[in-house]
Simulated scan of single mutants.
Amino acid sequence: MKAIEFHEFGALADVLQLVEKPTPTAGAGEVLVRLTARSINPSDVYTIQGTYGVRPSLPAVPGNEAAGVIEALGEGVTGWSVGDRVILMLGAVGTEGTWREYAVVKPQFLVPTPAALSDAQAACTWVNYLTAWIMSDELELQPDEPVLVTAGASHLGRAMLQLAAVRGFKVVATVRKAEQAQALLDAGALGVITHPGDDLAARWKEITGQKGIAKAIDAVAGETGTAVFNAMAPYGQMIVYGLLSNQPIQIDGRIIFSEATIRGFWLGRWLNRQTPQVLGKLIADVSAMFADGRLAPHVDTTVALDDLAGIVRVATESGAGKVVITG
Rank of each mutant, 00 (worst) to 15 (best):
S81F: 00
V286K: 04
G53Q: 15
V220K: 02
F9L: 01
M238I: 05
S154N: 00
L184R: 02
Q247V: 00
A183L: 10
A315K: 09
G212R: 11
G53F: 11
S318K: 15
F257D: 02
G27H: 01
A187V: 01
T113Q: 10
S245L: 12
H155L: 04
E179N: 14
R254L: 11
A304N: 13
Y46P: 00
L161D: 01
A153F: 02
S258N: 12
T113K: 10
G327H: 10
E206P: 09
F265Y: 09
P146M: 03
Q250E: 15
T208R: 14
T47L: 09
E71S: 12
R34V: 06
G74M: 08
F290H: 13
E5R: 13
R273S: 14
A288Q: 14
I325E: 07
E71L: 05
V31W: 04
A120L: 03
R100K: 07
T47V: 07
L117H: 09
V303R: 12
G242L: 01
V166K: 00
K177N: 14
L117R: 07
R100V: 08
M1Y: 00
I249C: 07
R313L: 14
K322G: 12
S39G: 15
A67V: 11
P56E: 00
A291D: 15
A296I: 01
Q210T: 07
A67M: 10
V149G: 00
V15K: 02
D285V: 13
R176L: 06
L190T: 12
G191L: 11
L139I: 03
G79N: 06
I311H: 06
V312Q: 10
K2T: 01
M238K: 01
A72I: 06
P146I: 06
V31D: 08
E5M: 08
W80Y: 13
G222L: 05
G321V: 00
P112Q: 05
I48M: 07
V228W: 04
V33T: 10
S154H: 00
A37W: 08
F257S: 09
G293N: 13
W270M: 01
A320I: 09
W80T: 03
S318Q: 15
M238V: 13
V278F: 09
A28G: 12
M1E: 05
L141P: 09
A67T: 09
P146V: 06
R100W: 02
A216M: 14
R294Q: 15
D285H: 08
A13F: 03
L279D: 09
E8R: 12
R167G: 08
I48R: 02
F9M: 02
T36G: 14
E71H: 11
I40T: 06
Q274P: 01
P112N: 04
Y129F: 15
G76W: 10
F265Q: 04
A315L: 10
W266P: 02
A66Q: 11
F169E: 02
I87K: 05
E179M: 03
F109V: 02
Q237R: 15
G76M: 10
V19Q: 03
V54F: 13
I134N: 03
Q142S: 11
G152H: 00
M135N: 01
V172W: 04
V323C: 10
Q108C: 05
D137S: 11
I70W: 10
E140M: 06
G236R: 03
W266E: 10
P112G: 06
Q277E: 15
G79W: 05
